[in-house]
């Protein structure tokens, strides 16, 4: 049932060409150079250290790796990470 609904939504989105992150629950990741990562639509913090930060998202885990990482701001849906970023990876 749910899968069927998802297919309908996907097809509909393709038809009206809405950006997927607006309608669906997908995370949106924006980086500014290698110093800022701006993450919307996360589902919570799962790991935090100065070298690695992991968030739960609709696609599984989002892993930000780097040095001297600091979460400048964090609330229920958005996060703003600052530091020397080396990698942003999705891990299932």
């Amino acid at each position: 049932m749910k899968r069927w609904l998802g297919r309908i939504v996907q097809t509909g989105l393709g038809a009206v060409e809405w950006p997927p992150d607006v309608v669906s629950d997908l995370p949106r990741v924006t980086t500014v150079g290698a110093i800022h990562v701006y993450l919307e639509n996360h589902r919570g913090l799962s790991f935090f250290s100065a070298e690695e930060i992991r968030f739960r998202t609709a696609l599984g885990e989002l892993c930000v790796q780097g040095d001297e990482l600091v979460i400048r701001a964090l609330n229920k849906a958005e996060a703003f990470i600052e530091g020397k970023i080396r990698a942003v990876r999705f891990t299932a």
């Binding site: 935090f48 990482l69 979460i71 609330n75 229920k76």
Partner: peptide, 12 residues
């Protein structure tokens, strides 16, 4: 965070 409290400057 999931209970709705906003955080800033989280650092080790």
């Amino acid at each position: 965070v999931s209970s709705g409290i906003a955080l800033w400057n989280v650092a080790v």
